[in-house]
Computed example of a mutant assay.
Amino acid sequence: MPAHSEPATFTIALYPIHDAQHGHVADQLLYRSGASSDEPLEATAKALASTVYELGDAGLLGSRSLFVTLPLAWLDRPELLPTPAPRLAIAVAELSDINEALLLRLDDLRERGYRIIMPCSLFNEHAKALWSRTDIVTLTGSSPFNETLHQQLSSSHIKLYAEDVRSMEELAHCQAIGCQLFNARYLTRPQVIATTSRGKHGNRAAQIRLVRSLYEEDDDLQRLQALVLQVPHLHVAILRRANSAFFNRGGTVTDLQRAVQVLGLIELRRLILTLTLANLQPTSLLLLRTALTRAYMCRNLAAPFPALNPDDAFNTGLFSLMDALLEEERDTLLAQIPLPPTVMAALTERTGPLGALLQLCENHENQLAAGEDEVAADQLHRCYLDALVSTQSLLGALA
């Protein structure tokens, strides 16, 4: 039997970027994968998944901009470009020369609202072609500096970004020559997070079908939502994304149907493709079946009571096992999900009508797990059997 190997660690660092008044206005994203098999596209997807899609406004970035370096291949896939565009400044990895194809890609990026970062050496050499296509010029200690060009930059739309400033003397020099943005690593430490593949689970087959359905001409939002229910990690990411400052125009979005409507098909494509590229691992199908069965059972039990929202009942059952599905600490996970107070109370304290429904479901599951010879054929058990049928129908129809 092969030895068990620990999941590879993926490390993300956000280096603070300050303006001339020392305000923290942006962060530079750097990342490193512990897996030698990671291709540049996959590694970038993992980094963006964590900083933009999984945490977003509720986590790492707040309202600041993100400076990110993308592989050249990423520019050929506009559906993968992260959003919101006005908060992203993009540099191109390993860029050594300028050609017509690249200029067209840069034009497309700026039309979409992204800012373009260019290294000083390349900008000096191709200033005429890049002038209208560049928003930020990166200056490092080893960068050649063209005084005439600098004078022209000082009165233009282009900002000078002093990267990797390592002393007070360097900072004063950069300010003197007109830099407006600074990465002063000697002043502040980067924010570093390390993640592994654990906790990033999803039904891989459902993800593939989901990606395919996003591009079908007769896209069916109900089918889309049914597929998302099979990918807990994606479900959570969509709720977080729909409640980000960029997409949420008022009122908390707490159910999947509304979240899908808020994001729209284009943003869903972008989010789902990026998270799929991030190489999420398969989850336990047995646990997924249990979570869906519990969710449907809660909804069935709520049906006779007009005061109970069936979607809230469904989410109560589903999210009662979401921490196990994602292998994340429950309180941490729930703190990041905008669930209604009644659902939150049911999940954390088993209180209120939804808490009572959840307790009934759990007690019934325990009774079945104990292998009791006789299970009463009452309304509770009928709700359970109907939930089994709904779960099987959902998973079977999407197989």
Rank of each mutant, 00 (worst) to 15 (best):
A3Y: 15
H4I: 15
P7T: 07
F10D: 05
T11S: 00
Y15T: 09
I17S: 04
H22C: 13
H24W: 13
H24S: 04
L30E: 13
D38L: 05
D38I: 05
E42T: 12
E42K: 09
A43Y: 13
A45Q: 02
L48A: 04
A49T: 09
S50V: 13
V52S: 11
D57A: 10
G62F: 14
S63N: 06
S63R: 03
S63L: 00
L72Q: 10
L72V: 08
A73I: 03
A73N: 11
A73P: 00
W74A: 02
R77C: 02
E79A: 13
L81P: 01
P82Q: 02
R87W: 05
A91F: 02
V92N: 12
D97A: 07
D97K: 13
R105K: 11
D107C: 05
D107V: 08
D108H: 03
L109F: 03
R110E: 01
E111S: 15
E111G: 13
G113F: 06
Y114Q: 05
M118Y: 01
M118P: 06
S121P: 10
S121I: 06
L122D: 02
F123T: 06
A127V: 11
K128L: 15
V137K: 02
P144N: 08
F145K: 05
N146M: 07
L149Y: 06
Q152W: 04
S154E: 05
S156T: 04
I158H: 07
A162D: 03
E163K: 11
E163T: 09
D164A: 14
S167M: 04
E169G: 08
H173S: 08
H173G: 15
N183Y: 01
A184I: 09
Y186H: 14
L187W: 13
V192A: 00
T195R: 13
S197P: 08
R198W: 03
G199D: 13
H201N: 11
R204T: 06
Q207W: 10
L210W: 10
R212V: 12
D220M: 07
D220T: 14
R223F: 08
L229A: 14
H233K: 02
L234M: 14
N243T: 08
S244H: 11
A245M: 12
F246M: 06
F246I: 12
F247C: 01
F247E: 01
G250N: 09
D255V: 01
V260K: 00
V260T: 12
L263W: 03
E267N: 06
L275C: 03
Q281F: 12
Q281V: 12
P282S: 02
L287C: 05
A291C: 11
R294M: 15
Y296R: 14
A302N: 07
A303H: 11
A303S: 15
N309A: 14
P310W: 08
N315F: 04
N315K: 14
T316C: 06
L321Q: 01
L321T: 06
M322N: 09
D323E: 06
E328A: 06
E328K: 12
E329K: 00
L334Q: 07
A335V: 04
I337A: 14
P338R: 10
P338G: 04
P340W: 11
M344Q: 14
A345M: 10
G352R: 10
P353G: 02
G355V: 00
L358C: 08
L358R: 06
L360P: 08
E362G: 14
A370Q: 09
E372P: 04
D373K: 14
D373T: 13
V375H: 04
A377H: 07
D378T: 10
D378E: 15
L388K: 15
V389F: 15
S390E: 13
G396I: 03
A399P: 13
